[in-house]
Amino acid sequence: MLGYVATRSVYALAVVFGVSIAVFFLIRIGGDPSALFLAPEASLEEIVRFRHQMGFDRPILLQYVDFLSRAVRGDFGLSLRYDQPAMQLVLERMPATLALSAAALGISLLISVPLAILAASYRGSLIDRIGLLISLVGQSFPTFWLAIMLILIFSERLHWLPPSGGGSWQNLIMPALALAAYSTAIITRLLRSSMIEVLQSDYIRTARGKGVSNAGIVLKHALRNAAIPTLTVVGLQVGALLGGAVITEEIFAYPGIGRLAIQAIDNRDFTVVQAFVFLTAVLIVGINLTVDLCYGLLDPRLRKR
């Protein structure tokens, strides 16, 4: 098990290293980054001074080493707009986004897991059809459309929930629902089909042959096995939730990192964009690592590697 953890962690570090390269070269792809930072009417003298000040006149490898050594300490430079450390700005908005993603994930799991179990156990029944309908709807309606519909119904029409802003649990409900729809659909469909497959396997027949009750068959023997392929998708969905938060936060004017990133792009505040991309990437790598480790817990066959 320890070897498994070590291998996975090394892979994760390698990915983070790759991300650092991508983030660094992101703003250098289009040539000299000074053009991005300075106003178009800046004089040659100003450009030269800025290039020297930012170190853009040094060899590129040296610049990267410098960037990396500061990045590992969390230093991405100052935000050009707010004059504050870029990473600090992103981190300040992080809790709001984490709360949104966690709420969305919670909602999808609370709906999809019981729904998938019931649908698979009573295949072809009314509950199975409802499950299929929910996954069809959740998968085909775009998040922004759902978000707007939610605002129209619950804010404009019913006045139950605030249409925008952050800071209270009421502000969390609609963005979380809009964000959860897609993951709910995906997880329901996948868990349902894995459950159906597992329920037909030989070891389920063995369990029935032992006299295990239906509930025991489904919840103990089948669910744990069906959870293994589903876990991959749940992990990927957590990443997608973080990414999807960008649009959802913008629609609901929710003060998370996604909204900050969009504003930073508008303002050409590239240090903030770099900090945002890097942090999000590290988070997603961290989630994937957690998923990999959970595999080992769920599936004993993976432990001896």
């Binding site: 396997s201 070891y203 063995t206 744990r224 096995n225 066959r301």
Partner: peptide, 15 residues
């Protein structure tokens, strides 16, 4: 009343 099945490789729960 108990039964042994044909496929020992797949008749035990892997987890």
């Amino acid at each position: 009343l108990s039964m042994i099945f044909q496929e020992p490789m797949t008749s035990l729960n892997p987890v």
